[in-house]
């Protein structure tokens, strides 16, 4: 049976989390457009910075343009959901506003760095996936030029790891930063500090 007294704190957290997530959704389009510009610039710099290969943005749609080969890959409709998840988690946690601000900043910085790296590596996966879908003779022709620009060749492990990162990793990272920050607060909730001191 559920105990009503134990439900209060989790329920308050859940309601606050839902409210913040709802508010963030209203601003999602604006946040997404602004955030994309913060992510694509450093990712383009990592890709060479000469404009030969670059991410370009039209509204919320992101494309990888490979000018040398005349290719354009539409990435996807970016939302960066784990950023909103992290913001909602920190905003919903009952803590001092300074704590939220500082840890929220740590979370945003960590997630931003992960987004830049995943965008940079994602470019490799997209281009190599495309290359391997071409007929052998065409691929052999393009391979030296592509390898020059994208040295990290696609292989099973890389694609697999990248897939796992997209499926599990991104959400886990947001959750991990929040859990790390909130653990002292949660230990108070569970009395674990008291138990460990008693031992």
């Amino acid at each position: 049976m559920l105990e009503r007294a134990l439900l209060r704190a989790p329920l308050v957290f859940l309601l606050r989390f839902a409210a913040v997530a709802g508010v963030l959704y209203l601003f999602r389009a604006d946040v997404s457009a602004f955030y994309l510009s913060l992510v694509t610039a450093p990712a383009n710099w990592l890709l060479g910075g000469d404009g030969g290969v670059a991410y370009t943005r039209q509204g919320h749609e992101l494309s990888l343009v490979y000018r040398q080969l005349g290719l354009r890959f539409t990435v996807h409709d970016i939302i960066y959901q784990n950023l909103l998840v992290a913001l909602a988690l920190f905003a919903a946690t009952q803590a001092h506003w300074m704590w939220k601000l500082q840890w929220g900043g740590v979370a945003i910085l960590t997630l931003w760095a992960s987004h830049v790296v995943s965008l940079f590596l994602g470019g490799h996966v997209i281009v190599w996936d495309f290359l391997w879908s071409l007929p052998t003779d065409v691929r052999a022709d393009l391979l030296p030029r592509v390898a020059e620009r994208f040295p990290m060749e696609r292989d099973w492990l890389f694609s697999r790891l990248f897939g796992l990162w997209h499926t599990w990793g991104r959400q886990s990272l947001a959750l991990a930063v929040w859990a790390l920050a909130a653990l002292p607060l949660l230990r108070r909730l569970s009395g674990a500090d008291t138990q460990e001191t008693a031992k």
Binding site: F17, A18, L186
Partner: peptide
């Protein structure tokens, strides 16, 4: 997606309360 995450943390925090008790 967010509802699932919220519910999961709700359940986990309820368990933390049980650990305390």
């Amino acid at each position: 997606e967010l509802a699932t995450l919220g519910f999961m943390l709700f359940t986990w925090m309820y368990w933390l309360g049980q650990v305390r008790r």
